[in-house]
Design a protein around this nucleic acid. Structure first.
Length: 551
RNA sequence: UGGGGCGUCGCCAAGCGGUAAGGCACCAGAUUUUGAUUCUGGCAUUCGCAGGUUCGAUCCCUGCCGCCCCAGCCA
């Protein structure tokens, strides 16, 4: 279905660079920090960076920006690799790490000190903050700003050797304390951190700041187009300052607007809080906006890719409605998911003219539009379950399901007519007595049209399976607008229930997705299912024109 | 009230001086043993507002207005 990708400003820039011979290949990179799981916003960046690289026959590096050992873990590295791979992208032999460049970065810091472009500051964090000035007031120089090169070198050496506690000193670039761009007011380059790094262990006592690392990492890797989000636009002059002072290759940075999805939060800090405080069951809880959660929920990777293509890329602060993502999921699943029948809210139907001891195995296609996908057998008997909302005692005009005296087709089966309604003492309908027209299997009756079709399952043969009905995690379009986003959580985001399913579903394997006809797509949970005992996650509902009509 | 961005249909988004692509949503109709899918057709005399330049402006200039980002030893 992927037609000519629509033009966007990044492709335009790349085309110009290629034509103007500013570069002769395209090298991009996806640089996550391994401090959390990837979310759908990262997926946008992944699809962009890897997509562009493959479009232009270039390369995209997966590089972990692991410059802050206090927040990074191997667990995240592994999870991120799995997610990128699952999304369908290939980063070549091995992923890269910022920590691979620690020695080089250190040498470059030395070079800047030697050039008189960096100094060791001994103010504490609070003093630095105050002296940085404000948006409208210039900062004031640190009393340590004019230390000699020799002294700076000595102090930095000691910082590196671990002679000082965290926070005692810091290496700063000497740029301009009055710069209107705050990033240029002598930004921090290296801080002391006595922390064990997930890859370099205890080798380093000082770690580079992101701003002193990122541009150089891209430079080392020969990244031609360094694509990042808008908030880094103000940092670009700083990166270019470092690159110029260091006299090394300057990649072209291009910024785009990050993704905002309605009814969800996207900051890793908040996602981590949801996990840590057990508001959800983990990073891959199917309600989370993470890639791993979507995978577990049953979203196909292709749906996420098509979503990223569909939303495009620009510089506007855009808000995408969750329904766009869900629609991409339907688009993919409609193609691939096998059809099955399942009843979530059962109402008993007895076929009065069908022998009590008779069972038929009706043949039903796995996919009505793709006969090559084969068929399965569905048992039929005189006692069935149908869904409660397929019956109305007083049907409104446009309702063409079951009602007193009404006919309806049983999906893949006979047409039946509702002859009698049985109620319990409280007046609730508990059973329908119906008669079947046995001339309607696989063919329409002559002389009348039966428009309604409902799904069903043979009571005697049905199997009960646990089902989880998921809904949006938040009730507010933009949870960040709430005083505290946690108060915007949807208390009904998870409903545990059961479904009565046709027997073939018991053999469903973990990760498989089915369409429960007329209901939605359901995926066998990969964590909680046992062989022969699937647990289903509702991936997404089907579009429902009737629900819309009702309103 | 410093700096950096952004404003094109309900939501995204092309367009880069020659007279408004596309997708989604929506509406109408057709097909349909899923009220699903599919298929047809409709859907911005107008590009935040006001001036200006020009034969001609969404595209250039000026001024307003609105929104986003920046004052971590986070990334």
């Amino acid at each position: 279905m992927s037609q000519e990708p629509t033009s966007n400003f990044i492709r335009t820039i790349i085309n110009e660079d290629l034509e103007g011979r500013k570069c002769d290949q395209v090298i991009t990179r996806f640089p996550p920090e391994p401090n959390g799981y990837l979310h759908i916003g990262h997926a946008k960046s992944i699809c962009l960076n890897f997509g562009l690289a493959s479009e232009y026959n270039g390369r995209c590096n997966l590089r972990f920006d692991d410059t802050n050992p206090t927040k990074e873990e191997d667990e995240y590295v592994e999870a991120i690799k799995e997610d990128v791979k699952w999304l369908g992208f290939d980063w070549g032999e091995q992923p890269l790490f910022a920590s691979d460049y620690f020695e080089q970065l250190y040498q470059w810091a030395l070079k800047l000190i030697a050039k008189g472009k960096a100094y060791v500051d001994s103010q504490n964090a609070e003093e630095m903050r105050v002296n940085r000035g404000t948006l409208t007031q210039a900062g004031t120089a640190s009393p340590y700003r004019e230390r000699s090169v020799e002294e700076n070198l000595q102090l930095f050496e000691k910082m590196k050797n671990g002679d000082f506690p965290d926070g005692a000193h810091i290496l700063r670039a000497k740029i301009d304390m009055a710069a209107p761009n705050m990033n240029l007011r002598d930004p921090a380059m290296y801080r002391i951190l006595h922390a064990r790094h997930h890859r370099t262990g205890d080798t380093w006592k000082i770690y580079p700041m992101y701003d002193f690392a990122h541009g150089q990492e891209d430079s080392i890797e020969g990244v031609t187009h360094s694509i990042c989000t808008l908030e880094f636009e103000d940092h670009r002059p700083l990166y270019e300052w470092f690159l110029n002072e260091l006299e090394i290759f300057t990649p072209k940075q291009i910024e785009f607007a990050r993704l905002n999805l309605s009814y969800t939060v996207m900051s890793k800090r908040k996602l981590l809080q949801l996990v840590n405080e057990k508001h959800v069951e983990g990073w891959d809880d199917p309600r989370m906006p993470t890639v791993s959660a979507m995978r577990r929920r049953g979203y196909p990777a292709a749906a996420i890719r098509s979503f990223c293509e569909r939303i495009g890329v620009g510089r506007n602060a855009s808000w995408i409605d969750l329904s766009v993502l869900e629609d991409c999921v339907r688009e993919q699943l409609n193609e691939s998911a096998f059809r099955r029948q399942a009843v979530l809210d059962p109402l008993k139907v007895t076929i009065t003219n069908y022998p009590d001891d008779k069972v038929e195995e009706l043949e039903a296609p796995n996919h009505p539009q793709q006969p090559e996908l084969g068929t399965r057998r569905v048992p039929f008997s005189n006692e069935l379950w149908v869904d409660r909302d397929d019956f109305l005692e007083e049907p409104p005009k446009k309702f063409f399901r079951l009602g007193p005296g009404r006919e309806v087709r049983l999906r893949n089966g006979y047409i039946i007519k509702c002859d009698e309604i049985i109620k319990d003492a409280s007046g609730e309908v508990v059973e329908l007595k119906c008669s079947a027209d046995f001339d309607t299997l696989g063919q329409n009756p002559v002389g009348r049209k039966v428009k309604g079709i409902i799904h069903w399952v043979s009571a005697r043969h049905a199997r009960k399976v646990p089902v989880r009905i998921y809904d949006r995690l938040f009730n507010q379009e933009n949870p960040d607008k709430a005083e505290n986003y946690l108060t915007a959580m949807n208390p009904d985001s998870l409903q545990l229930t059961e479904a009565l399913v046709e027997p073939s579903l018991l053999e469903a394997k973990a990760g498989e997705t089915f369409q429960f006809e007329r209901v939605g797509y359901f995926t066998v949970d990969t964590k909680d299912s046992q062989v022969g005992q699937p647990v289903f996650n509702r991936t997404v509902t089907l579009r429902d024109a009737w629900a819309k009509l009702k309103k």
